[in-house]
Design a protein around this nucleic acid. Structure first.
Lengths: 343, 343
DNA sequence: TCTGCGCGTTGAAAGGTTTCAATAGCAGAC
DNA sequence: GTCTGCTATTGAAACCTTTCAACGCGCAGA
């Protein structure tokens, strides 16, 4: 117990605690805590002195103890749907940036569309007592989310809506997005349009497709075909496009459910010697960076991903600060980005 | 204190603790803890009973308290260099999968090549007392890493080597990778090769370039040109390729420092009407999914990213279990993947 | 019947922070 | 010189889990 021996050389045997700092500075632990958390309550002289001791001893606050006391972890948990789709990593990046401003850690998990993995992460987050949770749900998790909220964890749903108005959410106006894409294709003179993507059951798909259909219906002689796929990756796009090419009545434009699908479509067309955009125009959705970097730069309907992340965190932090805060559904506007692939 | 009233309906006012479980089950907290952590020490009858109570009350272990007691967080921290490059997210994914098997949370931060952000994350991880740290260093962090290790945090360096043999690392044999790419181009008859990428100072670039140079030197009439870029993204590739096209003596093959650069190169060539691979062959590095999905599928030198993540975690967990474990540099083998872009 | 043994269980201590009621110190008012 | 009111500081309690020495009990062996 060499309390007074705390000298310059950090004897790093055991971690330095507030108690050590207090002893070395000749003040009480309460004061040290105040220096850390409410510096304005401490006299300037004491403040300065304690801060110096903290620096000298290399004290680093133990967050576990702080959490224990506070009853909640400062960290935010996030369950991402698919880390391999830059759309989601871009959202995560927005989240992370905003969170860093608040010095809150982000505990990240990716469900990879697997309900079981999703559930495992929810278990983990519950043990961690995270103060907030961001999730793009896969399985039937509403009951779990309710339970989490009852236990004091704020929840915000990302890129989905629960429909039940129970949880705040951040999403993009898919109807508008579908409309923008279809209008653009129609305005550039395309009439035989195919929509590639799926599965059909996904709300987003339904909205985008339905809006596109309405636009197409409003133009004489224009038709829309739906090519359903099980997943929404490049492979799906490739196969969907190959099917279209093999069949009769080749379309003159393809609206892909997202950019990954669009990239697959572009590949299939290129390899088949179909000229883009002369023979077939392609437009994607999301506007991930790879859309702009494609061999034929892809037109796309831009989703403001970083902003989605930011908005989600802002909603979440608001809910954490005031658990009675109102449930809000934030709907962001998509934006048409025209590039080479639609001429 | 309605201890005995703990019934099916979770009165979720305050979180259920071991103490509550103990009271409801009529045993001591020590026994509850044993049920949780050393079930074999508990008599079958008690075990069964306590487990039922745990289920009934919806008890979830408070990890903060556990951490406080243990002195260390079960979580692993990871600082990723650039989340926008799928190469790194793929590694992170491998890490995450392996970690999930051990029920350890992953706290993720991305430095985006910024030394300051990197430093902020190290602060955060220190406060969290993470038990292990995975990092692809940007700034001068060796002193920090040393300090972390002194304080009991295991450290593994990913996709870099420190040179100092102080920290374990996982990386890929870049010399071999550079050799594979160059050999492949030379064997397919290419003689005027350009290497696009940079910055020059990066060890990886040096190794890949140097190995390629050696291969080229071994073949009569073959030449290698180096086009240095500041970053390693699609934009850099695009500009590098444009420069090459504008200059005299157009190459017949381009070896891109990574796949992002290669995609940019492909775009520039396509837009300039240069045929790939007929006029110019392209090979990238990493073999991210987008290489296979490019309009002209890209040949690449595959880095086993998931395996890198797994190996890194295995090293890390070994170091956590036994702090005296030997420092190891794991070097994985790259693999040539031939696709359309090199004919 | 007594001793010794082993198993299962207990209860208290420890871990580091924050909070808050209580205290000390001090200046100004009377 | 005493009292009031204020600010700065104190010290102990609380948060929840894990660990471990100690305890009680039943049973086998003497």
């Amino acid at each position: 117990m060499t309390t007074s021996e705390a000298t310059t050389n950090g004897d790093t045997s055991r971690s330095v605690s507030v108690k050590d700092v207090a002893a070395a500075a000749g003040v009480s632990v309460g004061t040290v805590s105040n220096v850390l958390n409410r510096p304005e309550k401490v006299s300037p002289a004491t403040l300065e002195h304690v801060q110096q001791v903290i620096g000298r001893l290399g004290f680093v606050r133990n967050d576990a103890a702080r959490q224990l006391r506070a009853g909640t972890n400062r960290a935010i948990g996030m369950v991402v749907l698919d880390v391999r789709n830059p759309f989601f990593t871009d959202i995560a990046r927005g989240v992370e940036l905003r969170l860093a401003e608040h010095r809150r850690p982000l505990i990240l998990g990716s469900s990879d569309q697997d309900a079981e993995r999703e559930s495992t992460y929810l278990d983990l987050f519950e043990e961690q007592r995270v103060s907030g949770l961001l999730i793009t749900p896969v399985g039937k998790v509403l009951p779990r989310l309710r339970r989490l909220r009852e236990r004091g964890t704020a929840v915000v749903v990302v890129d989905r809506r629960t429909g039940s108005r129970e949880f705040s959410s951040v999403a993009v106006d898919d109807v508008r997005g579908g409309r923008l894409a279809a209008q653009h294709l129609l305005e550039s003179g395309r009439r035989r349009i195919a929509f590639i993507g799926g599965p059909r059951g996904l709300t987003q798909i339904k909205h985008r497709l339905h809006a596109a259909q309405e636009e197409v219906d409003a133009v004489d002689g224009a038709r829309l075909r739906f090519v359903e796929t099980g997943t929404m990756d490049a492979d799906a796009g490739r196969r969907g496009a190959e099917d279209l090419l093999a069949g009769p009545d080749r379309p003159d434009a393809i609206f892909a459910a997202n950019d990954l699908v669009a990239l697959g479509v572009l590949q299939a067309l290129t390899l088949a010697g179909v000229r883009v955009p002369e023979d077939v125009a392609i437009i994607g959705f999301d506007d991930i960076d790879f859309a702009a970097s494609a061999a034929i730069p892809l037109s796309s309907v831009r989703q403001p991903r970083a902003e989605m992340g930011r908005a989600a965190i802002d909603l979440l932090l608001a809910a954490i600060d005031d658990p009675a805060a109102q449930v809000r559904d934030i709907v962001l506007e998509p934006e048409l980005v025209v590039r080479r692939s639609t001429g």
